[in-house]
């Protein structure tokens, strides 16, 4: 077995809702354990309200768990400071969202360069700008977007936007990619092509990937499928 890239141990999450006089606690996750090994493609399935999104946000170090630990490699993500956690997210995790989440003011290349811009200081980025830009353009050309490099998100189709989002997620070569229903907002033909691209990149790069989906046909491509129900993995 390969070494683990991500380990979640005993993840619990509860929310307090209602007014101060009538507070009510809702537990969404009840001690979830999950491990993703190097190069492994894991599917995460579950009905709406099963706790997938909450688990995903905790694994992505965006939302703190009520209890439990998330280890990225050997580093316990939730024991780090906010800035250290942000740096870890930048270098070790790649995200592909259902709604692409590209910045509308930037063109395709600039959107892909964004993780590098966040990672590097102005001086470092300026020094490596030509090389980074060349890499981003090369990546986008490889994804069939050679004619769309200077286009802004509003000028791209849904499939094209998602391919730009995948390029952005892969640009810093993170060991783990988290894809939250990457084809959920696309028609079936476009979704098929995007999924094909995602899976081929995963294979080519031996990338670890957590793929959240509702679709059984997509889940069949995963090496392992974790199902969630009522805040527990089954």
């Amino acid at each position: 077995m390969n070494r683990p890239v991500l380990r979640a141990v005993g993840i619990r999450k509860g929310f307090v809702i209602g007014s101060r006089s009538a507070e009510r606690r809702i537990d969404v996750l009840h001690g979830v354990d999950l491990t993703i090994h190097d190069g492994e493609l894991v599917g995460l399935m579950g009905a709406s309200g099963a706790g997938k999104s909450t688990l995903l946000h905790i694994l992505a170090l965006l939302e703190a768990p009520s209890a439990g630990e998330v280890l990225i490699g050997e580093t316990s993500g939730w024991k780090l400071s906010i800035s250290e956690r942000a740096r870890l997210r930048n270098s070790k995790l790649g995200f592909v969202f259902q709604f692409y989440h590209l910045l509308p003011e930037l063109d395709a290349v600039e959107n892909v360069l964004l993780p590098a811009m966040i990672q590097k200081s102005a001086l470092e980025f300026r020094g490596a700008r030509a090389e980074l830009r060349e890499r981003a353009e090369h990546l986008l050309r490889g994804f069939g977007l050679a004619e769309r490099l200077k286009h802004r998100p509003a000028q791209l189709s849904g499939g094209e936007k998602q391919r730009v989002a995948i390029a952005r997620a892969l640009f810093l070569d993170p060991p783990l990619l988290i894809a939250d229903e990457p084809t959920g907002n696309l028609d079936s033909a476009t979704g098929e092509k995007v999924l094909e691209l995602l899976l081929s990149e995963q294979k080519k790069r031996s990338l670890s990937m957590l793929l959240v989906t509702h679709d059984e046909r997509i889940a069949r491509h995963c090496g392992r499928v974790v199902r969630m129900a009522d805040g527990r993995t089954t």
Binding site: L62, I82, S83, A86, R87, N90, F97, I118
Partner: peptide, 11 residues
């Protein structure tokens, strides 16, 4: 999005 990509609150 910026937070998800690694920006911290100070940034």
């Amino acid at each position: 999005i910026l937070c998800a990509l690694g920006a911290d609150p100070r940034g």
